[in-house]
Simulated assay, not measured.
Amino acid sequence: MALRLGTRRSTLATTQSGLVADRLRALGHQVELVEITTEGDVNTGPLASIGGTGVFASAIRAALLAGEIDLAVHSLKDLPVAPHAGLVVAAIPPREDPRDALVARDGHTLGELPAGSVIGTGSPRRAAQLEALGLGLEITAIRGNVDTRIRHVHDGRCDAVVLARAGLARLGRTDEVTETLDPLVMLPAAGQGALAVECREDDPVRELLAQLDDADTRACVTAERELLSVLEAGCTAPLGALAEVVEDLDGVELSLRAFVGAPDGSGSLRRSLTGPVDDPRSLGARLARLLLEDGAADLVSPPVSPPRPTIQEPPA
Score class of each variant (00 low, 15 high):
I150W: 09
T109F: 11
R157I: 05
A316Q: 13
V31M: 06
G116E: 13
V88H: 04
G86Y: 04
T11M: 14
V245H: 09
T37F: 04
C199T: 14
D216Q: 07
P276S: 12
P263R: 05
D248L: 03
P183Q: 05
G52R: 10
H84F: 14
L27W: 04
A101D: 01
L110D: 01
L208W: 03
P80F: 00
E253F: 13
D279K: 00
P114Q: 06
R270T: 14
A82I: 08
R170E: 15
G261R: 01
E176Q: 13
E253M: 13
L163P: 08
G167M: 10
P314V: 11
S272I: 09
A21V: 12
D159H: 11
G107N: 03
M186V: 08
V146Y: 09
E96K: 00
R4S: 06
L290E: 15
D22P: 05
A164Y: 06
G275W: 02
A285P: 00
L209N: 09
G86E: 07
R225F: 03
D202M: 02
V20R: 13
L113W: 00
D147S: 11
A82F: 03
L299P: 02
D70F: 01
G67F: 09
G116V: 09
G240W: 04
L47I: 07
G136D: 15
I150N: 10
D70P: 04
A127M: 11
L256F: 02
A104K: 10
A194G: 05
A194S: 14
E313W: 03
D159E: 09
H108I: 10
I69P: 01
L168E: 06
E96H: 04
Q312R: 09
R8G: 15
R173T: 03
P80G: 04
L181F: 02
V20H: 13
C199V: 12
T37P: 02
S58M: 13
P94W: 08
E138C: 01
